[in-house]
Amino acid sequence: MISKSFKKSLWIFHVNSGSCNGCDIEIVAALTPRYDVERFGIKLVGSPRHADVMALTGPITSDMEDKVKRVYEQMPDPKVVLVVGSCGISGGVFHESYHLAGPVNKVLPDATCVYVPGCPPRPEAIIDGVVKAWKFLESAGGGE
């Protein structure tokens, strides 16, 4: 029952690592009355210490590299990274740009990542990504 509570209650900390703001707006759209993720117990929190999921938008610029790492380390276990947008997967439209440290799997090589492709992805896709994140958290939480 306890590991099931991840499924019902997932707190998200949003990190913008140099995105174009398109993905961020879609994350906000998922919180609006139309999609209302709170009905699944998904909540945006203000501190990485409270979070289970880091919603990472953008391709990780070299400026943001150590900040993203630090935020990831500040989150308590078990945790998952939700990479929102094509930027975090491959660099997207910023592919091969001179100031990229990313994509995400280069900066956080041992993090569990859930990828949501799209430029920007639709809110439904983001919610679907969160559902996938549950599965990881559930197995991580149940194993302890």
């Binding site: 029952m1 306890i2 590991s3 509570s5 991840f6 019902k8 209650s9 997932l10 009355p33 209302d36 709170e38 009905r39 699944f40 117990g41 210490r49 289970d52 500040q74 308590p76 276990d77 078990p78 939480g141 302890e144």
Partner: peptide
Amino acid sequence: SRVGPPLRQPFWDVGKLLIKDSV
């Protein structure tokens, strides 16, 4: 005008916090 979380939501939240790491 949202649907909102189920009434049991706070119980799930507490249950989840209890299995998280305490840093």
